[in-house]
Write a protein that binds this DNA or RNA. Structure first.
Lengths: 345, 345
DNA sequence: TAATTCATTCAAAGCGCTTTGGGAAAAATC
DNA sequence: GATTTTTCCCAAAGCGCTTTGAATGAATTA
């Protein structure tokens, strides 16, 4: 294990040219099997590591993936992000990719993308938390920087790569469970509907209401940052209103503890007086099954999505000709103890 | 705005040598004021951006900071991390630094650090979630890679740069508040004590118990992953035990909603039957003030710590001769509604 | 006026890698 | 046996920047 060993030295050490060593190391065919073996062996023995900057300069490829998080968009700098990146990170490093993270700062988000594209600082980027007709998609397309969207940016689903969960279907299922149980007044405590995932969830909710002959009304829906406090406040508001809902649907587990507190405070029994369903991203510190009563959820691991998004992006980078991937993941409804038949009026 | 403009072209465009242009752009003194002005102007006009890889290769400096997160150490891949990085990220990008994030993957953590050091992939690293006598400190010192620890690794506080909050003092204060209020049976629901922050908190708790003439006993302490579920379980266990504590101290807000649920379930009134204090890292989705009753906390923003850690590290990188920074932040005790006098036995 | 110094600028040599364009020996073809 | 291919390897150019070592003319000093 020699510290600052570089190609030149390694080549001299082997009595070979840099060219041959480089080729041997990078798996090019025009090198004798025995030579390659020797090179590999010695390289390993001396702990040779190509200098990444030199490699990048020479190849123009950075072996890095960009994640850009605006700091004003607080909703992303949140636990969902770390779980997503935990999933993606595994795949990145398994494939020799680094993550370039850019958070907030003075430089405007658009400039960051332009810089990435022009300088080749990253080989691709992941777009998280897309909004309706997100401008990033146009920009990145124009810049010709490979990217994949976690989620979708609206109705036009072609023209860019994405992986999304079926939020609409999930909330359709969840709502249907409730209507099937006889609930007629069902409140939706949604995330910020500037994000498409939230509007999709509302649509699913409305779909099933209509299918059950119920008119969706705005007074039964809220759209807000996903925090414990909002969960508490909105739940309390709903449950304290006259003609209160008998069931509530939440866009995030982050709402739930607040919601449960509100129910406790009002002396309502969860699962009978009031039914609760939440979307569960599988955040490790918030376990739906461990709640009392255990929580009925529509569940899809955001971490798994992170891994898969990473895989797809790397494939796109390695094979730019291939078709843009589009993956829509179905979401499982897991019925647990927090849902029950609608109480008789 | 010309796309692929490089130094050579820019120099030709200006009728100057690359040398002069480079120097002008980088603020070296040996260039005429008027020339510099011209260079700056034209560079801006054509949108010239130096190729970072070339820059890195030439200077050996990467302008990047490494954050390495082992995926097995789940406690770090959690909301605390994203808030920390949100704070740090602002500072990084304001100073032209990128974040290299490495999460899990097959490559072992030590190898990643070695690679970073040898290849100059990063100019420095941030060590998060230190344990007692954390091996990373020795390794990084040996590798001569600038680093700063968020937290401390044990008793020897010299020999490495760190920024920590006064966890011991914080829990001393919190515990003292409780003993002053007459509480004698105080439970500690701590994070995993493999991490130094948690042991420091226990020490603070024990300090104040002793000061009040109370013997700390293991049966009044737990040490566990900071999840909602553990908060619920441990609280319930404590409160259901005979001779139950009249006050509980929590190492994280993540425990709290679970704890409050447990109290509600047992019909205990928070703030009178049972007093609660938690450490509050200022996670945006979990607001102590918004709870009902509002929660007494010891509070220190992890996001602010992130910014400051970033600043310090950048200073260290820019000025390697300077003394290693050590910052110990005091923590504020904020008394709110969840604490009250001990109930008469 | 001659000898120094200063202020600017430049050409050229790296940084450590990949890749192009040969080239010599060995193997295959005629 | 002569010619063509193949196999394997190399020298050198290039990626886009920084930095060293000189060179020029102007300004200063003696």
């Amino acid at each position: 294990m020699i510290a600052g060993m570089n190609l030149k030295q390694l080549a001299k050490h082997l009595n070979l040219s840099q060219t041959t060593v480089s080729r041997a190391l990078n798996g090019y065919p025009e090198v004798n099997a025995e030579t390659r073996r020797r090179v590999d062996e010695v390289a390993r023995k001396v702990g040779y590591r190509p200098n990444p900057h030199a490699m990048r300069l020479a190849t123009g490829r950075s072996h890095a993936i960009g994640h850009v998080l605006p700091s004003d968009r607080m909703l992303l700098i949140d636990p969902h992000f770390s779980d997503f990146i935990a999933g993606a990170g595994d795949v990145y490093s398994a494939n020799g990719f680094d993550v370039m993270l850019h958070v907030g700062g003075s430089e405007d988000e658009q400039t960051v993308y332009r810089r990435y594209a022009q300088s080749g600082a990253v080989d691709g980027v992941v777009v998280m938390g897309p909004r309706l007709n997100d401008w990033r998609i146009n920009l990145l397309t124009e810049l010709d920087l490979p990217f994949i969207v976690h989620g979708r940016a609206g109705d036009a689903e072609d023209g860019y790569a994405w992986l999304d969960i079926d939020n609409r279907g999930a909330f359709r299922q969840a709502t249907k469970l409730l209507t099937d149980l006889g609930h007629r007044r069902i409140g939706l405590i949604n995330g910020n509907e500037a994000f498409t995932f939230a509007t999709h969830r509302r649509q699913g909710y409305e779909d099933s209401l209509r299918a059950a002959g119920i008119d969706p009304v705005p007074s039964m829906m809220t759209s807000d940052a996903m925090t414990e406090e909002n969960g508490y406040r909105q739940t309390k508001r709903f449950l304290a209103s006259e003609n209160r809902p008998s069931a509530l649907l939440f866009s995030s587990m982050l709402f739930i503890s607040g919601a449960m507190r509100a129910a406790y405070e009002l002396g309502l029994h969860i699962g009978s007086d009031i039914s609760l369903i939440a979307h569960d991203d599988g955040l490790p510190f918030l376990n739906a099954e461990g709640l009392v009563p255990s929580l009925t959820t529509v569940r899809s691991s955001i971490r798994a999505a992170g891994s898969r998004v990473a895989e797809l992006l790397i494939e796109m980078i390695n094979n730019p000709e291939a078709a843009q991937p589009h993956e829509l993941w179905t979401v499982d409804l897991i019925v647990r103890g927090s849902t029950g038949p609608a109480p008789r009026a």
